[in-house]
C-alpha cells in the first residue's frame, strides 16, 4: 500500500516506480516482443498523445486570437495576429486579481489545515491507545467517499445561520480536514517503528514533543502527497464555492469562469479560453515540476 517511502526515485521513474523492476520489465518485453511489437506500441502512444494534447493546444491558440478571428470559418489554426487582449480584459475589466487571491488563499489555508490536523489525528490513531479509537477510525473510513453533493444543502443552511455565508470561513472550514488525509497520514505513521517513540518517551519527552520532533520530520513523503492532493482538489473545487460565494469579491477562479461562461460572455470565447488558460496553467506547471508526487498520490491512495 505505502510505496510512499521510496524517497529518492532516479530519473527513470517519474511515477515513483521502483526502477529495478521497470528496467527488468523493459528487458523482458524486448525479449518477448510483448504486444505486437514496439513500433505499433509507439504509434498508438503517439496518436493518443496528440489527441490528448489537442484540447490544450486549441485552448492556448484560441486564447491569443482576436474575437474577430475566433468567429472566422473555417477556423484558423495558428493565430494570424497574436493578441493579449483576452488576458488583459481579465485583469482590467474583470477582477482576476481577486478571484486568483481567493482561490490561492482558500487552497493554501486548506492545505496547511489538512497537513497539521490530519497529521495530529493520524498520529493518535496510529500510535496511541484510547477509548473510542475504533469508532473514530470507523467514522473516518465510513466518510472517506462522502461527496459534497450529499451535504451541501444543510451545510449552506448552517453557514447562513452562523453568519458565515459569503466569507472565507464558509469556503475554507468545511475542507479544513478531510478523512482521506487522516487515512493517508495514519497509514504512513503505522510504519514508524515504536522503538523510536519508546526511546523518546523513556527520556521523558512529551507526546507533543515526540510528534513535532520525531514523527513529523519523518512524514515528508505523505505530507507532500497530502499537500498536493489537497491543493489540487481545492483549486479545482466547484460545487461548494458556487453555493457559498455569493458576490464577486468572494468568487474563486472556477466559479468566476463558470458564471461568465453561462452569462453575458457565453460566446466571448477568446475571453473564456484565456480564463481557462489562467486557471489551468498554475496547476499544470505545478504538476510538471512535482509530477512524481501527483502520480504517487494517485497510485498509493487510489484516490484523486
Amino acid at each position: 500500500m505505502t510505496t510512499t517511502d521510496n524517497a529518492v526515485p532516479p530519473v527513470l521513474s517519474p511515477g515513483g516506480v521502483p526502477p529495478r523492476t521497470s528496467r527488468a520489465r523493459g528487458r523482458a518485453s524486448k525479449r518477448h516482443r510483448f504486444l505486437t511489437g514496439k513500433g505499433l506500441t509507439y504509434a498508438v502512444l503517439a496518436i493518443g498523445a496528440l489527441v490528448w494534447l489537442l484540447p490544450f493546444a486549441w485552448m492556448v491558440l484560441g486564447s491569443f486570437k482576436t474575437q474577430r478571428e475566433i468567429l472566422v470559418r473555417p477556423p484558423t489554426w495558428w493565430p494570424k495576429e497574436f493578441t493579449a487582449d483576452n488576458f488583459s480584459t481579465w485583469f482590467t475589466q474583470l477582477d482576476f486579481g481577486t478571484f486568483f487571491t481567493n482561490s490561492l488563499v482558500v487552497a493554501v489555508i486548506t492545505v496547511l489545515g489538512n497537513m497539521v490536523f490530519c497529521s495530529m489525528v493520524g498520529y493518535a490513531l496510529a500510535k496511541m491507545e484510547f477509548a473510542g479509537k475504533r469508532y473514530l477510525f470507523g467514522a473516518v473510513m465510513a466518510t472517506l467517499m462522502v461527496p459534497t453533493v450529499a451535504t451541501f444543502v444543510p451545510l449552506f443552511v448552517m453557514v447562513s445561520k452562523l453568519g458565515l455565508a459569503n466569507t472565507y470561513g464558509a469556503l475554507i472550514l468545511p475542507f479544513l480536514t478531510q478523512p482521506l488525509g487522516v487515512f493517508l497520514m495514519r497509514q504512513f505513521m503505522m510504519g514508524i517503528p515504536d522503538s523510536l517513540l519508546e526511546a523518546a518517551r523513556l527520556d521523558g519527552a512529551s507526546e507533543l514533543r515526540i510528534f513535532v520532533r520525531i514523527v513529523m520530520p519523518l512524514c515528508g513523503p505523505p505530507l507532500a502527497t497530502l499537500g498536493i492532493l489537497t491543493f489540487l482538489s481545492s483549486w479545482n473545487n466547484f460545487l461548494w464555492p458556487l453555493v457559498a460565494a455569493q458576490s464577486q469579491d468572494m468568487y474563486t477562479l472556477p466559479v468566476a469562469l463558470s458564471l461568465y461562461s453561462t452569462g453575458q460572455n457565453a460566446t466571448n470565447y477568446g475571453l473564456l479560453l484565456a480564463g481557462a488558460v489562467l486557471i489551468i496553467t498554475p496547476i499544470l506547471l505545478l504538476f510538471v515540476f512535482l509530477q512524481r508526487y501527483f502520480i504517487q498520490g494517485v497510485a498509493t491512495t487510489g484516490l484523486k
Binding site: 490544450f56 484560441g62 479545482n236 472556477p254 466559479v255 461562461s261 473564456l272 489551468i280 496547476i283 499544470l284
Partner: peptide
Amino acid sequence: PLFRVIFYAPVVTSIVAVSVVWRYI
C-alpha cells in the same frame, strides 16, 4: 515519462476550465 505526463495532464485540470474548452471545440 513524457507520455505518462501527457496522458495524466487532464486529470489535474479544473473541470470548469476544460468544459469551457470542450464547449468551444
